[in-house]
Amino acid sequence: MTAASKKLVVCGGTGFLGSRICRAGASRGWDVTSLSRSGNPNWSAITSSSTAPSWSIKVDWAKGDMMDPNSYSHHLTGATAVIHSMGILLEADYKGVVQGRESPISGLRRAFSANKKGAATNPLDKDVGQGFPRLRPGEPDAQLTYELMNRDTALALALASSKARVKTFGYVSAVGGAPILPHRYITTKREAEALIAERFPDMRAVFFRPPFLYDNSRAFTLPMAAGAGVAAGINGLLGGIFTSIGGAAVAKPLKADVVADAVVEALEEEGVKGPVEPAEIERLAEKAWRRGML
């Protein structure tokens, strides 16, 4: 199959990493479709300019609600690969504490609770006729939880992709959590990985586990990346003793473009499947760079 005949669907394609995956796919000659609620990106939010880059005309910026598979399932027809590149880093109650809108005690108690509900309906429910179940928040206040956004939207997308006979499914996970994040942030991602691998053996599943991402277009990520880089260096010198408790906070940060290039390279490599850790991400990105130099 030639690159020109390959179709890539990026769910969350207007996001920080998703938009760069679209760029990487388009530069490799893929037919790229981005799915997001807005359709067109807000370029000033994800790049250093409010003007659309030249490569963006090669991407179909389509609208699709990840809570409603029926709104995007038709875009999966004929896709070679589909990737889920969306989720939430902080839940609403935790954001409320950080932004001073909620009591620290009540907000943090909710944020760091051991369990929260995901979708009110089973995202893997196949007994719905020709359509798919719409995902509705299971929490009483309709909160968008890690369970719903990081896990259930990915499972619903995997189901729709399987029905569309997509051969390769990618999921942007994470190398680990962080001390400042609720543990459920990473456990819901691992649950998504396990369920996708178990329930959809017909698809080659690739789980990307990047560390903290940075880019010059997001100035606030630079000092955070520098701090994570120092922590990663110290952790390495100490034999990785802080890896289990530090998670992404002690992992070497990577530039978002590097991860995006690695994602597309992995989607093209039939032998890549399962978890892809940071070292493998760097290897794939370097391979993609060398390919581009030829």
Results as ranks from 00 to 15, higher is better:
A156I: 02
P211W: 02
S38D: 03
E91T: 15
L124T: 10
V172Q: 04
S38T: 10
L222F: 01
P179H: 07
G239W: 07
A154P: 00
F242N: 02
N150C: 11
A26K: 12
T80W: 13
A81G: 07
G233S: 12
M224H: 02
G39P: 08
P41Q: 06
A24V: 00
V206S: 06
A160M: 09
R199L: 08
D215H: 13
G87I: 00
A197R: 11
A251E: 07
K167W: 03
G18I: 12
A119N: 03
L90C: 04
A279T: 12
F242E: 02
I281R: 03
G15T: 09
A4S: 14
G100T: 01
M1Q: 14
L155E: 08
G64Q: 07
G15E: 03
T80P: 01
V264P: 05
S173G: 00
D65A: 06
A158G: 01
G118K: 04
E139I: 03
H84P: 01
A205K: 03
Y185M: 05
F200R: 07
G131F: 05
G64M: 05
R291V: 12
N122F: 11
K163F: 09
W61D: 11
L144R: 08
G227E: 10
E102H: 10
W55A: 14
G274R: 13
L195G: 05
G131Y: 05
L181C: 08
A178F: 03
A251C: 08
G12Y: 04
I88Y: 11
A120M: 09
I105K: 15
R184H: 05
A178P: 01
D257A: 15
W30Q: 05
A119K: 01
I196R: 05
S56A: 15
L267A: 00
N115Y: 12
V10C: 02
A194D: 13
E270K: 11
V32Y: 09
S34M: 07
